[in-house]
Amino acid sequence: MADKKYIRVVGAVIVNSDDEILCAQRPEDKNLALKWEFPGGKVETGETETEALVRELEEEMECRIDVLDKITTTTYEYDFGIVELTTYYAELLAGEIKLLEHVDMKWMSRENIGDLDWAPADIPAIEMIQTQKGAIK
């Protein structure tokens, strides 16, 4: 059996002024169809994690963010590959969020964020976010 592809990805945990967190739903035609995730994407060769996160949010949602504190890095093995996900708190700076990649988005309270059907790699970060009060500025 061939080695699985190793995919480094980053996710933005964007917290608004009401302490709600942006959750984005994946499209039907991609891996993890209709699962919820923190917006972000693959880290390209030569890019830092924060550069990748800023670029991905610009590409997928046409918004600018400021990347804040790192939350965690988790690794999860899917059938299509091994995903290493690093999540960061982020602040929305400019731009109205447009769904260019995702099929839906919701602002959810920390308490209720776990109610969605999340991609497995995101779940450890969700558990940490729920125990931390307030965005880290």
Rank of each mutant, 00 (worst) to 15 (best):
M1D: 13
D3L: 14
K4S: 12
K4P: 07
K5F: 11
K5L: 12
I7M: 12
V10Q: 08
V10A: 04
A12C: 07
N16M: 06
N16Y: 01
E20Q: 15
L22D: 01
C23H: 07
R26L: 15
R26A: 09
P27I: 04
P27Y: 06
E28D: 13
E28F: 09
N31R: 10
A33C: 06
K35W: 01
F38P: 02
F38W: 08
P39V: 04
P39E: 08
P39K: 12
G41S: 07
V43F: 07
T45I: 10
G46F: 03
G46N: 09
E47N: 05
E49L: 05
E49P: 00
E51F: 02
E51S: 03
E56V: 05
E59T: 10
M61I: 09
E62C: 06
E62Q: 13
C63P: 03
D66H: 12
L68T: 02
D69Y: 08
D69Q: 14
D69K: 13
I71R: 02
I71E: 02
T72A: 09
T74R: 06
T75P: 01
E77C: 04
V83M: 08
V83W: 02
L85I: 04
T87G: 00
A90W: 03
A90N: 00
E91Y: 09
L92D: 05
A94W: 02
G95T: 08
I97C: 02
V103W: 04
D104T: 04
D104C: 01
D104Y: 08
D104M: 03
M105G: 02
M105Q: 09
W107L: 02
M108E: 15
N112D: 15
I113R: 07
G114H: 11
G114A: 09
D115G: 08
L116W: 09
D122A: 15
D122G: 03
M128N: 10
I129M: 05
K133A: 12
K133M: 13
G134R: 13
